[in-house]
Simulated scan of single mutants.
Amino acid sequence: MNGIEGKFSIKKILVALDASSLSRPALETAAELASRLGAELIGLFVEDITLLRVAELPLAMEVGPLSRLSRRLQIPELEKQFRAQAAIMRHSLANVAKRLGLTWEFRIARGKVALEILSAEEEADLVIVGKCRWPMGKRLGSTTQTLVFKGRCLTLVLHESCTFGLPVVAIYDGSVQGGKALKAAEQLVGLKDGSMMVLVTASDAASAEKLADSVRLHFNIKGQEQESEIRIMIRPTLPRLIFAVQGMGPVVVPANTEFLYEGSLCEFISTIRNSVLLVR
Protein backbone atom coordinates (compact mmCIF):
# COMPACT_ATOMS: atom_id res chain seq x y z
CA MET A 1 0.00 0.00 0.00
CA ASN A 2 1.29 3.41 -1.02
CA GLY A 3 1.20 5.44 2.20
CA ILE A 4 2.65 2.68 4.37
CA GLU A 5 5.71 1.85 2.33
CA GLY A 6 9.29 2.88 3.09
CA LYS A 7 11.50 2.89 6.16
CA PHE A 8 12.97 5.60 8.32
CA SER A 9 16.69 6.06 8.52
CA ILE A 10 17.69 7.92 11.68
CA LYS A 11 21.41 8.64 11.66
CA LYS A 12 21.58 11.75 13.85
CA ILE A 13 19.56 12.54 16.97
CA LEU A 14 19.54 16.07 18.38
CA VAL A 15 18.54 16.51 22.02
CA ALA A 16 17.94 19.95 23.51
CA LEU A 17 19.57 20.30 26.94
CA ASP A 18 19.17 22.96 29.63
CA ALA A 19 19.12 23.34 33.40
CA SER A 20 15.57 21.99 33.81
CA SER A 21 14.68 18.73 35.52
CA LEU A 22 13.66 17.27 32.14
CA SER A 23 17.14 17.42 30.62
CA ARG A 24 18.62 14.34 32.29
CA PRO A 25 15.69 12.02 31.44
CA ALA A 26 15.57 13.46 27.92
CA LEU A 27 19.28 12.74 27.51
CA GLU A 28 18.82 9.15 28.73
CA THR A 29 15.94 8.61 26.29
CA ALA A 30 17.90 10.12 23.41
CA ALA A 31 20.93 7.99 24.25
CA GLU A 32 18.87 4.80 24.42
CA LEU A 33 17.33 5.52 21.01
CA ALA A 34 20.72 6.40 19.54
CA SER A 35 22.18 3.14 20.86
CA ARG A 36 19.36 0.99 19.47
CA LEU A 37 19.29 2.80 16.12
CA GLY A 38 23.05 3.11 15.70
CA ALA A 39 22.71 6.88 15.45
CA GLU A 40 25.02 9.74 16.39
CA LEU A 41 23.88 11.77 19.40
CA ILE A 42 24.14 15.57 19.37
CA GLY A 43 23.51 17.56 22.53
CA LEU A 44 22.59 21.25 22.13
CA PHE A 45 22.77 23.77 24.96
CA VAL A 46 21.38 27.21 24.14
CA GLU A 47 22.40 30.31 26.06
CA ASP A 48 19.02 32.02 26.04
CA ILE A 49 19.47 35.54 24.67
CA THR A 50 16.03 36.47 26.06
CA LEU A 51 17.38 36.03 29.60
CA LEU A 52 20.43 38.13 28.75
CA ARG A 53 18.18 40.92 27.50
CA VAL A 54 16.07 40.74 30.63
CA ALA A 55 19.25 41.05 32.70
CA GLU A 56 19.91 44.38 30.99
CA LEU A 57 16.71 45.86 32.45
CA PRO A 58 17.25 48.04 35.54
CA LEU A 59 14.64 46.19 37.63
CA ALA A 60 15.71 42.65 36.72
CA MET A 61 16.06 40.53 39.86
CA GLU A 62 16.78 36.88 40.67
CA VAL A 63 15.92 34.85 43.78
CA GLY A 64 18.58 32.63 45.34
CA PRO A 65 17.55 28.93 45.31
CA LEU A 66 18.67 28.41 48.93
CA SER A 67 18.53 31.81 50.60
CA ARG A 68 15.30 32.90 48.84
CA LEU A 69 16.74 36.41 48.88
CA SER A 70 16.34 38.61 45.82
CA ARG A 71 19.28 40.34 44.21
CA ARG A 72 20.09 42.33 41.09
CA LEU A 73 20.44 40.10 38.04
CA GLN A 74 23.90 40.71 36.54
CA ILE A 75 24.89 39.70 33.00
CA PRO A 76 28.38 38.42 34.02
CA GLU A 77 26.77 36.23 36.70
CA LEU A 78 24.20 34.94 34.23
CA GLU A 79 26.91 34.08 31.69
CA LYS A 80 28.82 32.29 34.44
CA GLN A 81 25.69 30.24 35.19
CA PHE A 82 25.35 29.40 31.50
CA ARG A 83 28.93 28.12 31.39
CA ALA A 84 28.44 26.03 34.54
CA GLN A 85 25.19 24.52 33.26
CA ALA A 86 26.75 23.74 29.87
CA ALA A 87 29.70 22.03 31.56
CA ILE A 88 27.33 19.83 33.57
CA MET A 89 25.35 18.90 30.47
CA ARG A 90 28.49 18.13 28.48
CA HIS A 91 29.78 15.91 31.29
CA SER A 92 26.46 14.04 31.46
CA LEU A 93 26.42 13.54 27.68
CA ALA A 94 30.01 12.31 27.66
CA ASN A 95 29.29 9.80 30.43
CA VAL A 96 26.18 8.30 28.87
CA ALA A 97 27.82 8.18 25.44
CA LYS A 98 30.83 6.36 26.86
CA ARG A 99 28.60 3.87 28.69
CA LEU A 100 26.63 3.05 25.54
CA GLY A 101 29.50 3.38 23.06
CA LEU A 102 27.91 6.25 21.14
CA THR A 103 29.39 8.71 18.70
CA TRP A 104 28.52 12.10 20.16
CA GLU A 105 28.93 15.84 19.89
CA PHE A 106 28.10 18.71 22.26
CA ARG A 107 27.28 22.16 20.95
CA ILE A 108 26.70 25.51 22.60
CA ALA A 109 24.74 28.24 20.83
CA ARG A 110 23.53 31.68 21.88
CA GLY A 111 20.20 33.03 20.70
CA LYS A 112 16.49 32.39 21.02
CA VAL A 113 16.11 28.78 22.11
CA ALA A 114 13.51 27.67 19.57
CA LEU A 115 15.31 29.32 16.64
CA GLU A 116 18.64 27.75 17.58
CA ILE A 117 17.05 24.31 17.79
CA LEU A 118 15.36 24.83 14.41
CA SER A 119 18.70 25.84 12.93
CA ALA A 120 20.50 22.81 14.39
CA GLU A 121 17.79 20.37 13.30
CA GLU A 122 18.78 20.86 9.66
CA GLU A 123 21.54 18.32 10.33
CA ALA A 124 19.38 15.92 12.34
CA ASP A 125 16.82 13.24 11.55
CA LEU A 126 15.15 13.33 14.98
CA VAL A 127 14.87 16.16 17.52
CA ILE A 128 14.03 15.43 21.16
CA VAL A 129 12.70 18.09 23.54
CA GLY A 130 10.97 18.06 26.91
CA LYS A 131 7.31 19.06 27.13
CA CYS A 132 7.87 22.49 28.66
CA ARG A 133 4.74 24.36 29.69
CA TRP A 134 3.89 27.84 30.88
CA PRO A 135 4.27 28.13 34.67
CA MET A 136 1.04 27.37 36.57
CA GLY A 137 -0.71 26.35 33.37
CA LYS A 138 -1.32 23.53 30.94
CA ARG A 139 -0.44 25.36 27.74
CA LEU A 140 2.75 24.34 25.97
CA GLY A 141 5.68 26.70 26.35
CA SER A 142 6.61 28.93 23.44
CA THR A 143 9.71 26.91 22.53
CA THR A 144 7.78 23.64 22.25
CA GLN A 145 4.98 25.33 20.32
CA THR A 146 7.44 26.79 17.82
CA LEU A 147 9.01 23.37 17.24
CA VAL A 148 5.58 21.78 16.79
CA PHE A 149 4.55 24.38 14.21
CA LYS A 150 7.84 25.01 12.40
CA GLY A 151 9.92 21.85 12.85
CA ARG A 152 10.92 20.05 9.65
CA CYS A 153 12.06 16.63 10.85
CA LEU A 154 10.80 14.01 13.30
CA THR A 155 10.14 15.73 16.65
CA LEU A 156 9.78 13.77 19.88
CA VAL A 157 8.11 15.78 22.66
CA LEU A 158 8.76 13.96 25.92
CA HIS A 159 6.26 13.95 28.74
CA GLU A 160 7.54 14.96 32.17
CA SER A 161 7.89 11.30 33.21
CA CYS A 162 9.93 10.56 30.04
CA THR A 163 8.71 6.95 30.25
CA PHE A 164 8.14 4.91 27.11
CA GLY A 165 5.31 2.56 27.97
CA LEU A 166 3.39 0.21 25.71
CA PRO A 167 1.52 -0.12 23.50
CA VAL A 168 2.84 2.43 21.04
CA VAL A 169 -0.07 4.32 19.46
CA ALA A 170 -0.10 5.39 15.81
CA ILE A 171 -2.70 7.76 14.39
CA TYR A 172 -3.34 6.78 10.76
CA ASP A 173 -5.44 8.93 8.42
CA GLY A 174 -4.39 7.53 5.04
CA SER A 175 -2.12 10.48 4.22
CA VAL A 176 1.54 10.20 3.29
CA GLN A 177 2.43 11.50 6.76
CA GLY A 178 0.01 8.97 8.23
CA GLY A 179 1.88 6.18 6.48
CA LYS A 180 5.15 7.51 7.83
CA ALA A 181 3.63 7.69 11.31
CA LEU A 182 2.67 4.02 11.08
CA LYS A 183 6.20 3.07 10.00
CA ALA A 184 7.74 5.15 12.78
CA ALA A 185 5.46 3.48 15.33
CA GLU A 186 6.55 0.08 14.02
CA GLN A 187 10.16 1.04 14.60
CA LEU A 188 9.42 2.09 18.18
CA VAL A 189 7.60 -1.20 18.75
CA GLY A 190 10.61 -3.06 17.38
CA LEU A 191 12.93 -1.22 19.74
CA LYS A 192 10.77 -2.09 22.74
CA ASP A 193 9.69 -5.61 21.66
CA GLY A 194 6.11 -4.62 22.38
CA SER A 195 2.73 -4.06 20.79
CA MET A 196 1.01 -1.31 18.84
CA MET A 197 -2.45 0.21 18.62
CA VAL A 198 -3.49 1.99 15.43
CA LEU A 199 -6.17 4.67 15.62
CA VAL A 200 -7.67 4.88 12.14
CA THR A 201 -9.31 8.29 11.70
CA ALA A 202 -11.62 9.25 8.86
CA SER A 203 -14.56 11.50 8.06
CA ASP A 204 -16.99 8.64 7.31
CA ALA A 205 -17.42 4.93 8.06
CA ALA A 206 -16.75 3.69 4.52
CA SER A 207 -13.43 5.53 4.29
CA ALA A 208 -12.45 4.35 7.76
CA GLU A 209 -13.12 0.69 6.93
CA LYS A 210 -11.11 1.00 3.73
CA LEU A 211 -8.15 2.48 5.63
CA ALA A 212 -8.45 -0.17 8.35
CA ASP A 213 -8.40 -2.93 5.71
CA SER A 214 -5.22 -1.51 4.21
CA VAL A 215 -3.60 -1.50 7.66
CA ARG A 216 -4.72 -5.11 8.29
CA LEU A 217 -3.24 -6.12 4.94
CA HIS A 218 0.00 -4.37 5.80
CA PHE A 219 0.25 -6.17 9.15
CA ASN A 220 -0.73 -9.48 7.57
CA ILE A 221 2.11 -9.19 5.06
CA LYS A 222 4.53 -8.41 7.87
CA GLY A 223 3.12 -11.11 10.18
CA GLN A 224 2.19 -8.64 12.92
CA GLU A 225 -1.55 -9.30 13.35
CA GLN A 226 -1.20 -10.69 16.87
CA GLU A 227 0.86 -7.72 18.07
CA SER A 228 -1.38 -4.95 16.77
CA GLU A 229 -4.85 -3.61 17.53
CA ILE A 230 -6.85 -1.41 15.17
CA ARG A 231 -9.52 1.02 16.39
CA ILE A 232 -11.68 3.09 14.08
CA MET A 233 -12.64 6.64 14.99
CA ILE A 234 -15.10 8.56 12.78
CA ARG A 235 -14.52 12.32 12.85
CA PRO A 236 -12.90 12.13 16.29
CA THR A 237 -13.10 15.17 18.53
CA LEU A 238 -10.13 16.31 20.57
CA PRO A 239 -11.59 14.96 23.87
CA ARG A 240 -12.19 11.53 22.25
CA LEU A 241 -8.62 11.36 20.96
CA ILE A 242 -7.27 12.36 24.36
CA PHE A 243 -9.39 9.68 26.04
CA ALA A 244 -8.34 7.03 23.48
CA VAL A 245 -4.63 7.30 24.30
CA GLN A 246 -4.93 7.40 28.09
CA GLY A 247 -2.74 4.80 29.75
CA MET A 248 -0.94 4.01 26.50
CA GLY A 249 2.66 4.51 25.45
CA PRO A 250 4.09 7.16 23.09
CA VAL A 251 1.71 8.50 20.45
CA VAL A 252 2.95 8.86 16.87
CA VAL A 253 1.06 11.63 15.08
CA PRO A 254 1.20 12.76 11.44
CA ALA A 255 1.70 16.52 11.34
CA ASN A 256 -1.28 18.50 10.03
CA THR A 257 -3.68 15.58 10.24
CA GLU A 258 -7.27 16.72 9.68
CA PHE A 259 -8.39 16.08 13.25
CA LEU A 260 -5.32 17.47 15.03
CA TYR A 261 -4.24 20.72 13.46
CA GLU A 262 -2.32 23.70 14.86
CA GLY A 263 -3.99 24.79 18.11
CA SER A 264 -5.74 21.48 18.71
CA LEU A 265 -2.46 19.61 18.17
CA CYS A 266 -0.73 21.72 20.83
CA GLU A 267 -3.64 21.19 23.21
CA PHE A 268 -3.50 17.44 22.55
CA ILE A 269 0.24 17.28 23.28
CA SER A 270 -0.09 19.46 26.37
CA THR A 271 -3.04 17.56 27.85
CA ILE A 272 -2.09 13.90 27.44
CA ARG A 273 0.39 12.14 29.71
CA ASN A 274 2.10 10.46 26.76
CA SER A 275 5.21 11.40 24.88
CA VAL A 276 4.41 12.42 21.29
CA LEU A 277 6.39 11.77 18.12
CA LEU A 278 5.44 14.20 15.34
CA VAL A 279 6.02 12.88 11.83
CA ARG A 280 6.34 15.29 8.91
Rank of each mutant, 00 (worst) to 15 (best):
residue 4 I to L: 13
residue 4 I to K: 00
residue 5 E to W: 06
residue 9 S to F: 03
residue 13 I to F: 05
residue 15 V to H: 06
residue 15 V to D: 07
residue 15 V to S: 10
residue 18 D to I: 04
residue 19 A to H: 14
residue 22 L to D: 12
residue 25 P to N: 10
residue 31 A to Y: 09
residue 31 A to D: 00
residue 31 A to I: 04
residue 37 L to M: 14
residue 40 E to A: 11
residue 47 E to I: 00
residue 51 L to E: 14
residue 54 V to D: 01
residue 55 A to L: 05
residue 59 L to P: 02
residue 62 E to K: 10
residue 63 V to L: 11
residue 72 R to T: 03
residue 73 L to T: 00
residue 76 P to V: 07
residue 76 P to E: 14
residue 80 K to R: 14
residue 82 F to V: 01
residue 88 I to A: 13
residue 89 M to G: 11
residue 93 L to I: 07
residue 98 K to F: 08
residue 104 W to I: 02
residue 114 A to Y: 02
residue 118 L to P: 13
residue 120 A to G: 02
residue 127 V to K: 04
residue 130 G to V: 02
residue 143 T to V: 15
residue 144 T to E: 06
residue 148 V to W: 02
residue 148 V to C: 05
residue 149 F to E: 11
residue 149 F to C: 01
residue 150 K to W: 09
residue 150 K to S: 14
residue 150 K to N: 12
residue 152 R to C: 02
residue 153 C to A: 07
residue 155 T to L: 15
residue 157 V to P: 04
residue 166 L to Y: 09
residue 170 A to R: 11
residue 171 I to C: 09
residue 174 G to P: 06
residue 174 G to F: 09
residue 177 Q to L: 09
residue 180 K to G: 07
residue 185 A to Q: 10
residue 187 Q to Y: 01
residue 193 D to C: 11
residue 196 M to N: 12
residue 198 V to S: 04
residue 199 L to S: 12
residue 200 V to T: 08
residue 203 S to F: 06
residue 205 A to K: 09
residue 213 D to S: 15
residue 215 V to S: 03
residue 218 H to W: 15
residue 219 F to Q: 07
residue 221 I to N: 08
residue 221 I to Y: 05
residue 224 Q to N: 10
residue 228 S to M: 10
residue 234 I to H: 09
residue 236 P to R: 14
residue 237 T to D: 10
residue 243 F to W: 11
residue 249 G to V: 06
residue 249 G to R: 08
residue 252 V to N: 09
residue 253 V to R: 06
residue 253 V to A: 05
residue 257 T to S: 14
residue 260 L to Y: 02
residue 260 L to G: 08
residue 260 L to W: 00
residue 262 E to M: 12
residue 264 S to F: 02
residue 268 F to H: 07
residue 269 I to E: 03
